[in-house]
Amino acid sequence: MTTTTRRRVGIAGAIVGAASAGVAAAALAKRYAVGRIRLRPDLDANEPFGELGGTEHTLTTSDGKALHVEVDGPHDAPLTIVFCHGYCLNLESWHYQRKDLRDTHRMVLWDQRSHGRSQRGAADDSTIDRLGEDLAEVIERFVPGPCVLVGHSMGGMTIMALADRYPELFGDRIQGVALIATSAGKLAELTLGLPALVSKVVHKVAPTTVSLLGRRGALVDRTRHAGSDIAFLMTRYMGFGDSRNISPTLVDFAESMIRGTPTEVVADFYPALMNHDKLSALHVLDPVPTAIVVGDKDWLTPPDHSKAMAEALPKAQLTEVPDTSHLIQLERPGVVNDALRDLIKRVGQE
């Protein structure tokens, strides 16, 4: 081996060694971070996540998709609360609200198409408007009288799509609305907490990247390992706020719902979320009591989006919760439950 060859081999070895050391350091830091979080007091260690069952039903929609629906609480209650979950979640994301209200209120919870235990829809039908149609059919089938609609994230957009298509339902059949960590539009302009230039690049490449992941969905899903440290950390820091007391069990529960959503579904609904624009439909909600709730650390549907909705709905009550992020109904259930009970009380006074 010549001197030049030995030098090249040495340089290559040094580069590989440095890269390996960097990967090892990153892995060690990741495990250290996860370990520190998991060692904190876990107030929800014994919480029965996913175990609050109701009466199960299947609704076949007008386009032939089977939606999973659960009815809970007193069946003779005069008012029904309909819960619409968010993107990549399922009806179990309303665990604390269901637990708080099930003794006193009739509830309808449903898995939006392609989520949870509902049937997969085609990519062409993965739109917010189609979700609004699904909600109309859920109300028609399972709500015998007046109701309050509660929507988180994409579920809030579903309610807006319903308002856009069926404004006559609001004020009579639908007597109150809660919009939780959601947006009336312009999600494609989010900075995600990144510098403006970086954010612009992310938004430019994101649609192509998500589309590519969708086409390789089955392969990607095989790599989304249960209990992944990376998935745990992403859920912890994107879904929850600054508090150091977030339960590791709660993070695992949220991550399991996200992981349970096929990558193809994530890709199918991404354009619908980015193109969502229902600000002009918000006036339909004005005649009914409306609550808007958002965390001040929400990167995915930031407080400015809730403030824009509140400006369009001057009679709505806006609650901005400090040190809280996107999964607010899980992170701050007491605040959300209080807001819902206050909304229900206002509905009763109308």
Rank of each mutant, 00 (worst) to 15 (best):
G193F: 10
G193P: 11
G193S: 13
L194K: 02
P195S: 00
P195E: 15
P195Q: 09
A196F: 05
A196D: 08
A196R: 11
A196P: 15
L197D: 11
L197P: 03
V198I: 03
V198R: 12
V198F: 09
V198C: 10
V198A: 15
V198T: 10
S199Q: 12
S199H: 03
K200A: 13
K200P: 08
K200G: 13
K200Q: 11
K200W: 14
V201S: 06
V201I: 12
V201T: 06
V201N: 12
V201P: 03
V201E: 04
H203S: 12
H203C: 14
H203Q: 13
K204S: 07
K204N: 12
K204C: 11
V205M: 04
V205K: 06
A206P: 06
A206L: 03
A206H: 08
T208E: 12
T208I: 08
T208M: 13
T208S: 15
T208F: 12
T209V: 15
T209K: 15
T209G: 13
T209S: 13
V210M: 07
S211K: 13
S211Y: 12
S211P: 09
S211T: 11
L212V: 12
L213V: 03
L213K: 06
L213N: 06
G214S: 08
G214D: 09
R215N: 09
R215C: 13
R215W: 15
R216D: 08
R216M: 10
G217Y: 05
G217R: 01
A218G: 11
A218S: 14
A218I: 15
L219F: 13
L219D: 11
L219R: 05
L219Q: 09
V220C: 06
V220S: 10
V220R: 01
V220G: 02
V220N: 08
D221W: 02
D221L: 02
R222P: 05
T223N: 03
R224N: 08
R224H: 09
R224T: 11
R224F: 10
H225S: 15
H225K: 14
A226Q: 04
G227A: 06
G227M: 00
G227F: 01
S228P: 02
S228D: 02
D229Q: 05
D229T: 00
I230C: 04
I230K: 05
A231T: 00
A231F: 04
F232Y: 02
F232G: 00
F232L: 00
F232K: 03
L233D: 03
L233K: 05
L233H: 00
M234H: 07
M234K: 04
M234W: 06
T235H: 00
T235D: 01
T235G: 06
R236K: 09
R236S: 03
R236Q: 05
Y237C: 05
Y237K: 03
M238E: 07
M238W: 06
M238T: 02
G239C: 10
G239S: 07
G239W: 01
F240R: 05
F240T: 00
F240Q: 00
F240D: 01
G241F: 08
G241H: 10
G241K: 09
